[in-house]
Design a protein around this nucleic acid. Structure first.
Lengths: 205, 205
DNA sequence: AGTGATACTGTATAAAAATATAGCTAGCGC
DNA sequence: GCGCTAGCTATATTTTTATACAGTATCACT
């Protein structure tokens, strides 16, 4: 089986999560919305590559005719650990593992799990080592006060979202930390998802 | 749930078999071919009936937007809400519902879920409304420092356990609350379980 | 410097799928 | 005999979906 590029494995991971969540394979248009493509052909060509490399099967002329090639029946959600600056979230190398968590447990449905680092959200009851359930959906605009996974100039961080025109504030929930100020015209800001749930297991209790 | 006619259950059975077989829900045209209808509307109206009677869900405007309504098999763990003093934990009347959580997600395995009330464990990152995964096992003796669900003189409470001979302390994690002192010879103490995980979903974030 | 791959935008278009409307027949209850 | 429902036929029409074709920018090879 051919190697996937980071972007390709990100897309494959999303398709897997989506299918685990509501069983229907996505259409090109749905993929387009999720990744904020402006052309359905971006989705189409990615699917072609995934099919050529043997990760999926495409039934031609069939709506939603995407099938996952068996592999190790990916059930549950991937747990992402430390993400290196600039690298896509769902790339294989940051995966700590796979947890048997039903994506539908959270609403509006989770796409991946993220291990929290640091205490910047302590007062919101989110501690170092906790696991967040995250919904990744480019079409989802965060509401003020909502907790988001954001990437500012390459670095991934979890904070509370507050927007004021071209100015975005990423607010910690711990007086020992300072808010991050993001100027949408100057800084690069990517929303890697909104937090839809929290999970604490094992030693963290 | 409404009764189905023989024809209707024949069609429902076919849809179920089809979805188990190749995971894609059928289109109206596929149903038409399978049952030798000469009009897609025959399929359409059958689907409408099955949806109205609650056996399937139809997502309108969506190719293959058919979803089976899971026959309520008790999967997951029961979620317990406010427990009245003196009443058993798992009595029907305190059950808020059933969540699709894999008990094996937690180790050493959870037996039920409990909705937290109050802020007495705030500094341990457990907030009002959070859901705890609890292991109930009579043979399990709590270790000092472990979080337990205990019942003192009828009242259920979540605290950190500390034992010193005949004296047990139930310690909150919030300076606004006072430790509960329990004399094993004088007071009635039942251990309703040890906390093995935490779950936060929906509005609590 | 040239070639090919990745990762897209932008615009079409045909096929697939959902869905509306207007029937028709047989059986049941009253 | 009348109204009602189940179970269809037949024909359209609109939306969704798949998919082709023509580009652009970037990067890695060679």
């Amino acid at each position: 089986m051919d190697e996937l590029t980071p972007r390709q494995s990100e897309i494959l991971a999303w398709i897997r999560a989506r299918m685990a969540e509501d069983s229907l394979p996505p259409t090109r248009a749905e993929l387009m919305r999720a990744f904020d493509f402006r052309s359905p052909n971006a989705a189409e060509s990615h699917l072609r590559v995934l099919a050529r490399k043997g990760y999926i099967l495409l039934q031609s002329g069939t709506a939603r005719g995407i099938r996952l090639c068996a592999s190790e029946e990916e059930t549950g959600l991937p747990l992402i650990g430390r993400v290196a600056a600039g690298q896509p979230m769902l790339a294989e190398e940051f995966r700590e593992g796979q947890l048997p968590v039903d994506p539908k447990l959270f609403s509006p449905g989770a796409d991946y799990l993220l291990r929290v680092q640091g205490m910047s959200m302590r007062d919101a009851g989110i501690l170092d080592g906790d696991i967040l359930a995250v919904r990744h959906d480019a079409s989802l605009t965060p509401q003020d006060g909502q907790m988001v996974v954001a990437r500012v100039n390459g670095e991934v961080t979890v904070k509370r979202w507050k927007r004021d025109g071209k100015q975005v504030w990423l607010l910690p929930e711990n007086p020992d930390f300072s808010p991050i100020s993001v100027d949408l015209q100057r800084d690069s800001l990517t929303i890697e998802g909104v937090v839809v749930g929290l999970l604490r297991i094992g030693g963290n209790l």
